[in-house]
Simulated scan of single mutants.
Amino acid sequence: MSSSCDPEYAPAGDVGGALMVIDSRLKAIYDGKVDPDPEQRLLMDQYLASLGPGGAQDLLDGACTLIYMFMTWLRKAHEDHDKDVIEYVVPNLVATMRTMPRSVRPEAIPTMAAMVIAAGTGLSPSLWRRQYGEWTDEEMNPLEATAFLLAEHINRITGDRDYATRMITNALSSAEQD
């Protein structure tokens, strides 16, 4: 049975831009920088400011697409070991978010967990969220943190710091060729 939240109905958004944001955060953390480099932060702020309202929505949809793609990969990886992705990924994600009160306010955690569960069950995070209203400014950091944490989780599982980024880049490249 088809759902109004099926990914085929969802806008992909600016996946490349969203991936750039997540990849820069991953590299900063892997380089031991807890706080973003001021120059890097300025460049990112300038990029985000240049997007305008339509571009910001595209970036938001791109982040949701990343979350969907990351959860699809994680679901398949867990199924290969007869494990449930929701059981193994969501509690870890929630526990990590709880340790990040400056980036992820406690009231945003249930929304992020539900969005990840939606993606893990094959629904579009973007369309799932739209059922409950527009994104709020307070949800932007948690959304970014969710995509970041899923990418970092994939990198940790594979033992490769660039795996999640490379996986998406390869998917984008093959989509362009088709």
Rank of each mutant, 00 (worst) to 15 (best):
89 V>N: 09
158 T>M: 11
101 P>Y: 08
35 D>C: 06
78 H>F: 10
57 Q>W: 00
57 Q>L: 08
154 I>T: 03
49 A>C: 03
16 G>K: 14
146 T>P: 00
147 A>Q: 06
132 Y>E: 02
62 G>S: 06
161 R>P: 13
9 Y>I: 01
123 L>R: 09
1 M>W: 09
96 T>Q: 12
77 A>L: 08
83 K>C: 12
31 D>V: 01
20 M>W: 15
64 C>M: 06
19 L>G: 02
19 L>T: 08
138 E>D: 12
13 G>W: 00
79 E>R: 15
168 I>A: 03
36 P>Y: 04
51 L>A: 02
8 E>P: 02
26 L>N: 09
116 V>E: 00
163 Y>C: 03
10 A>P: 01
140 M>P: 00
176 E>S: 11
146 T>Q: 04
168 I>R: 00
34 V>G: 15
17 G>I: 00
114 A>H: 09
26 L>F: 05
5 C>F: 12
146 T>H: 04
127 L>G: 06
39 E>G: 08
122 G>T: 05
74 L>M: 13
175 A>R: 10
35 D>S: 12
87 E>I: 10
24 S>A: 11
127 L>P: 09
45 D>W: 01
39 E>A: 09
5 C>E: 15
46 Q>V: 02
19 L>C: 06
31 D>N: 10
66 L>W: 01
84 D>S: 13
132 Y>A: 05
129 R>Y: 06
73 W>Y: 15
47 Y>P: 12
1 M>R: 06
111 T>W: 12
88 Y>P: 09
142 P>L: 01
44 M>H: 08
62 G>V: 01
10 A>S: 10
162 D>S: 10
65 T>D: 01
115 M>L: 06
109 I>G: 06
124 S>Q: 04
9 Y>L: 10
35 D>K: 10
117 I>Q: 12
143 L>P: 00
168 I>P: 02
136 T>G: 04
91 P>R: 09
72 T>Y: 10
40 Q>F: 11
159 G>T: 08
119 A>D: 10
89 V>W: 04
15 V>Q: 11
21 V>Q: 09
50 S>W: 06
12 A>K: 05
29 I>C: 08
173 S>R: 14
106 P>L: 03
42 L>G: 07
14 D>F: 03
94 V>I: 14
70 F>N: 07
143 L>K: 00
19 L>V: 11
145 A>F: 00
37 D>M: 11
157 I>F: 10
165 T>G: 05
126 S>A: 12
31 D>A: 05
10 A>K: 01
40 Q>P: 05
138 E>H: 01
27 K>W: 04
156 R>W: 03
48 L>S: 13
26 L>M: 14
160 D>S: 05
2 S>W: 09
80 D>F: 01
168 I>S: 03
